[in-house]
Design a protein around this nucleic acid. Structure first.
Lengths: 136, 136
DNA sequence: CCGGATCCCACACGATACTG
DNA sequence: CAGTATCGTGTGGGATCCGG
């Protein structure tokens, strides 16, 4: 896709990783979904066991029902979670993680773990940066 | 932070993973930065070798110079990349990945790899979802 | 060559009220 | 209980012009 075929080692890797012409980048197509504010949180919850709507709502108190519904819908749309309706009275809906979801969450959880482990370092880096030259 | 102390297996994991009261979630504090549209792309580039500003601009043709500057600045602020100015004529600036950046990119690259490998499955899931019941 | 400053828009997200 | 509908806002990101 590079008209002048920049044969750096990077562009080779890039072509391999991205598909890559402009906007229909496969990686971003997938990442942009799970990069939402609540997606990783819900994936993390459902990686443990299935949950009902109200349970998730209680587990994540500061999510609005709008975003809970929407995020669950998007995750279901991408095939990461499954939605099962039990016609009880009143009706209950259970969300569970699919094999695809688990296969995604395996590497994803490593990143979340990294974020947790290195949060202090990142905060320190920000302080150092903001307090120094380019601070302004 | 759960007033009623929901002792599900999830909440235990959650407390461990998140810190977790509401908005100053460590995980999201870190993730929201690297979830930007261009962050992973630039991290990926710089994981290979250092690059100059103009090189990155050519490697990622569809990024605006505004977002290139801003994303690089943010990545530097979080300590993932280092900025080195060579007072040549005209001046050149080199960006390189720090050890912290490499330690982040190790797990992150696994997720990118997953996204690449499973893009087709995700697209298929979307088609199936859009074409079926909830399609509306 | 490497940016900063400004204008602008789309969209993710939140708050609230209403339904089956 | 498990959502849908509507409205309002903050901000991530693009386009363009200017500066060292």
């Amino acid at each position: 896709m590079n008209q002048r075929a920049e044969v750096t080692s990077f562009s080779a890797v890039m072509a391999q990783v991205d598909g890559w012409d402009s906007d229909n980048c496969p990686v971003r197509d997938v990442i942009s979904q799970i990069a939402g504010k609540w997606s990783t949180l819900l994936l993390h919850a459902l990686s443990d066991r299935p949950y009902r709507f109200g349970e998730l709502r209680r587990l994540v108190p500061d999510i609005s029902q709008r975003m809970l519904t929407q995020t669950l819908r998007d995750l279901q749309r991408d095939g990461y979670i499954a939605r099962t309706v039990y016609p009880t009275k009143p009706p209950s809906v259970e969300y569970s993680m699919t094999p695809l979801g688990h296969s995604l969450f395996a590497p994803l959880s490593k990143v979340l773990q990294w974020a947790q482990d290195n949060h202090e370092q990142v905060k320190a880096a920000r302080l150092a940066f903001d307090g120094s030259d380019l601070a302004r």
